[in-house]
Design a binder for these strands. Structure first.
Lengths: 196, 196
DNA sequence: GTCTATAAAACGATAGAC
DNA sequence: GTCTATCGTTTTATAGAC
């Protein structure tokens, strides 16, 4: 009797952990199957292939961020400053809770120039991410400046993971958070400050 | 027939181009051989294997940056501000001149958590890079602050490539340069500014 | 002959797919 | 579990320079 040993959701979750830690090309279907306690052939019952599996993983990450991270930016029960801090802190905490840093950033670096398969999903993710950050900054800055601040926070965050992976010192991530907050607070200061 | 079709240097250079564009795991020995006009077996007269080849590539990149980029930071014929701008602009120009962005950053993301083989070489590279940037900032800031500024420029630069790869818009890199210069110039301002 | 860069063929292992 | 393709690697042979 075809009793399902693991749900599709669990398979996606295990795949997320492995892809995040070992990357796309270094993670084999056998690795994934073993992590789920399945025979590797069983995978094709859930997904049409490795690419389709990764797309589901990216979709799951996107859904999670939409529901748990991006929404914070629009939570009107919090002050804008609190939203920014909560958003960035949570994102750092979530990404740090399992090995591998930011899956979207990793995949962008590893696959963006090799295949177009994952690009649309990743672009949408980062667009919404930037929109959320820019929305918070827009309480203090005009739209253009808010967008720049969002982009700056984003590139600092992604770049910080490069250094964290090499050095194992997480202060790079904390510094990203602190600077993002400092820039938010600096809006009242002089023009020179605003340009930073 | 000891008539060399390609020199070892040319092999390393071709490998650099391919590894930069397609990543380590997506680049096969056959790909590399084809790019050099050789059969893949012939590679093993130059290198003991793929890892050894990559190590040579990383060494070549390091040597290039030492000779052409890092030295700018210590060039006393230039003003400190000019050094910073020249350094960052040249690095952006060099990395953008061929596909794939920053090889060191790409490799850090792709391999740092999977193997320790390349880690020491990459760490040394980024350490010297940070030292060079911090040295320039140290003309305007104390050692600790200069180091933070260097780290910020670094993470912004590496993170910018994530966005460039996804969006094909290079403004992310120009913004990194502009902000690094603005922070350099902001040293004379008030304390709030200096913290950015 | 000896040396060496390349070609050619084939190795075992492992990949993704079914 | 089996398939086929391809991976990195190894081996053998060949061709030209000394």
């Amino acid at each position: 009797m075809p009793i399902q040993k693991v749900t599709k959701e669990e398979v996606v979750n295990q795949a997320l952990l492995l892809f995040k830690k070992r990357g796309y090309h270094r993670t084999s279907m056998a690795d994934l199957a073993e992590a789920c306690g399945l025979l590797k052939g069983s995978f094709y019952h859930y997904f049409s292939g490795k690419e389709a599996l990764m797309k589901e993983v990216l979709g799951a990450v996107h859904s999670y961020f939409k529901a748990k991270i991006f929404v914070i930016a629009y939570d009107e029960t919090l002050l804008p400053r609190e939203r920014l801090e909560k958003m960035l802190a949570k994102q750092i905490r979530v990404a740090s809770s399992t090995e591998g840093g930011c899956l979207m950033g990793n995949m962008a670096i590893e696959t963006a120039l090799v295949t177009d398969e994952f690009r649309p999903a990743m672009r949408t993710f980062f667009d919404e991410y930037l929109d959320a950050l820019a929305h918070v900054y827009s309480y203090k800055y005009d739209a253009k400046k808010a967008r720049q601040m969002a982009e700056q926070a984003m590139v600092e965050y992604e770049g910080a993971w490069v250094m964290v992976k090499l050095t194992d010192s997480s202060h790079y991530l904390q510094d990203v958070l602190e600077r993002a907050m400092t820039r938010f607070d600096a809006a009242e200061s002089n023009n020179v400050t605003e340009k930073l």
